[in-house]
């Protein structure tokens, strides 16, 4: 992972040097602008994530047991108890946003309805591990680096061309492809961090079995729903079944592999 992180830093360094060379920005300004860009993405991302699912605070009196579990897990993991929210997402899901000391965990009503108590605890431990390991911040930082490199690549194309329609098209395409290339490395880190969060969750609850069972139960439920999906659309997505390009551009490892690893601990 150190190699992948170094590659990401190299991408950013090249972009920073280009900005300094082309626009004459001093290093300090490049760094301040980069931090501001990522900071805005972080703040906006957190707000949008909660808003996009319609998350609401889960009062302690409504789910005292869930609050007790989160409090106990947080204490064991050495982090402040995060804000606990609930949303109706239509599917069993849970996610964490924010950082250590200012984290939020959102669980869907469907997840609470589908899983047993120990399975919910496994899921919560996994999400708390993401907060403790600063994985959310890492993803925002990765997306920030990818966006900055893509914007610089776009401007490099625009400033060296004749500003005709082909140049504008080329700039957009180069920006998109550059972002995709950088995100390949960000996603590699993300998949690795998922395994780490699984291991941490298993260590906290004393076994990988509850989380493995939760993943198994949910993916079995998803198979039923997927069969109802539009077959025509699915047929067009020939690389989206976790092969080739899709596996390089995936934030999570395959569920089956995670279950296998959790059970093999």
């Amino acid at each position: 992972m150190a190699v992948v992180g170094s590659i990401l830093f190299a991408f950013y360094a090249v972009a920073a040097v280009v900005v300094m060379g082309v626009f004459g920005w001093p290093l300090g300004l490049v760094l301040v602008a980069s931090v501001a860009f990522v900071g805005v993405q972080y703040k906006l991302g957190k707000w949008m994530a909660l808003r996009s699912v319609g998350a609401e605070d889960l009062p302690e009196e409504r789910a005292p047991d869930l609050h007790r579990r989160v409090e106990s897990l947080s204490r064991d993991m050495g982090i402040d108890k995060p804000r606990l929210m609930i949303a109706r997402m239509g599917v069993p899901n849970a996610f964490a946003v924010g950082r250590k000391g200012a984290g939020t965990v959102v669980v869907s009503e469907e997840l609470l309805g589908a899983l047993d108590d120990d399975e919910v605890e496994g899921v919560l431990a996994h999400e708390l591990a993401h907060i403790r390991n600063r994985d959310v911040v890492m993803m925002v930082l990765g997306q920030g680096v990818a966006s900055i490199v893509a914007i610089v690549a776009q401007w490099a194309v625009l400033l060296t061309g004749d500003n005709d329609i082909a140049d504008f098209f080329l700039a957009i395409v180069v920006g998109q492809l550059t972002q995709m290339l950088v995100m390949v490395f960000v996603f590699a880190i993300s998949r690795y961090r998922e395994y780490v969060a699984d291991d941490d969750a298993a260590a906290e609850v004393g076994s990988g079995e509850p989380l493995a069972r939760a993943l198994e139960k949910i993916s079995r439920g998803a198979e039923g729903r997927e069969s109802e999906l539009d077959a025509q659309a699915a047929a067009l997505c020939i690389f989206d079944d976790r092969g080739g390009l899709a596996s390089l551009l995936a934030t999570h490892p395959p569920v089956e592999k995670r279950i296998e690893r959790l059970r093999g601990r």
């Binding site: 996610f95 925002v140 990818a146 993300s190 998803a222 067009l236 989206d240 080739g244 934030t251």
Partner: peptide, 24 residues
């Protein structure tokens, strides 16, 4: 051929994963 991969590139770090699918 890989529309989901393109969407993930743009939404990673900006929107929670699994919202359109399921947990994990």
């Amino acid at each position: 051929v890989a529309p989901a991969a393109v969407v993930r590139v743009h939404l990673a770090g900006r929107r929670p994963t699994g919202r359109d699918g399921t947990y994990g």
